[in-house]
Amino acid sequence: MYSNLRGMFVVKRRGGVIQYFRTGFDLFSLPRWDLRELGRLDMLNPEDRSVGGDFERIIAKECNKGFPNHKPQRPRR
């Protein structure tokens, strides 16, 4: 979700943990599996659909193509 009040992206986890990201591209610091999970979800954006909608399209495109432009963290084996 994008919060106009804070000017940040907000990710709320199932356990109640809330993470804040200054820009949408800061989300790419998350691991690959986490980004794929976020890419499958619809972004809730009650205040400003344009910012969240634009980023929702970017992250979905990156997930579908295997992250060609942004290189998220990969777990070591």
Rank of each mutant, 00 (worst) to 15 (best):
P31K: 12
G15R: 13
R13T: 08
K65F: 07
A60Y: 02
I59Q: 01
G16E: 00
H70D: 02
R77T: 12
L38K: 03
I59K: 01
R40N: 08
G39A: 06
N4I: 14
F25L: 13
R32N: 07
F55M: 03
E47N: 06
R49I: 14
N69D: 15
H70M: 13
E62S: 03
E62C: 02
M1Y: 03
R57L: 03
Q19V: 09
E56G: 07
R49G: 05
I58N: 01
F9G: 01
D42C: 07
V10Y: 01
E56T: 12
E56C: 07
L35K: 04
E56R: 08
F67D: 07
V10A: 01
A60T: 12
D42G: 09
G15L: 02
N64Q: 15
C63G: 04
G39H: 05
F9T: 07
I59F: 05
S3M: 00
P75H: 13
W33D: 15
G52Y: 02
N45Q: 07
N4D: 11
E37K: 10
I58H: 00
T23N: 03
G7N: 04
D26Q: 10
E62F: 00
N4P: 07
R57Q: 10
R77D: 08
K12R: 11
L41H: 12
Q73D: 11
V51N: 00
L44Q: 11
W33R: 08
P68S: 06
L5W: 08
Y2A: 02
Y2G: 00
M1D: 12
V11I: 13
F55P: 01
R36E: 12
V11G: 00
N64S: 15
R76N: 12
R32W: 08
P31V: 08
S29G: 09
R74K: 15
A60R: 15
E37W: 09
P46N: 08
M8G: 05
V51S: 03
G15C: 09
F28R: 04
R40C: 05
V51R: 10
V17H: 10
P31C: 05
E62M: 03
G15W: 03
D54V: 14
S3W: 03
P68K: 08
F67N: 06
F25C: 08
M1A: 11
K12S: 05
D42V: 09
L27Q: 06
V10I: 13
R57N: 07
R57K: 09
D26K: 06
D26A: 07
P46Y: 06
G53L: 03
P68F: 04
F21W: 03
G15K: 13
I59H: 00
E56V: 08
K65N: 11
I18Y: 05
A60Q: 14
D48I: 10
R13E: 14
F28N: 01
Q73I: 14
I58W: 00
F9D: 02
D26V: 09
Q19K: 14
D42K: 12
I18S: 07
D54Y: 15
T23L: 04
L38W: 06
F55C: 02
R40H: 08
E47Y: 11
D48F: 10
M1C: 07
F28L: 04
F21L: 05
Q19F: 05
D48H: 10
F25S: 04
L35C: 02
F28E: 00
N64D: 14
S50D: 11
E56W: 01
R49H: 08
D34W: 07
M43R: 06
P75M: 14
M8I: 10
R22W: 08
M43W: 02
L27M: 15
Y20F: 10
D26E: 15
K65T: 11
F25V: 13
